[in-house]
Amino acid sequence: MNIIVANEREKTVTEIIFSGVTVADLLQQLHLNLEAFLVVRNREVITEDEALHEDDTLELLSVISGG
């Protein structure tokens, strides 16, 4: 399925061909640590077990401060 991902840390918006099911699968596919990001869909934070759907638009908020 196709998913749009806006990464706050990298300041990028990319369309991804996602082969998994959940948020945890997505972060694993992107080689990102679950502890380092909050995942937001439709302005709501979702947990790592949440299933993703075709054409979902997600924001990855960086947990780690930049200092």
Partner: peptide
């Protein structure tokens, strides 16, 4: 945790 603080600030 840092994740809790970020979540609180977001909410």
């Amino acid at each position: 945790t840092e994740k809790e603080v970020r979540l609180y600030a977001f909410l």
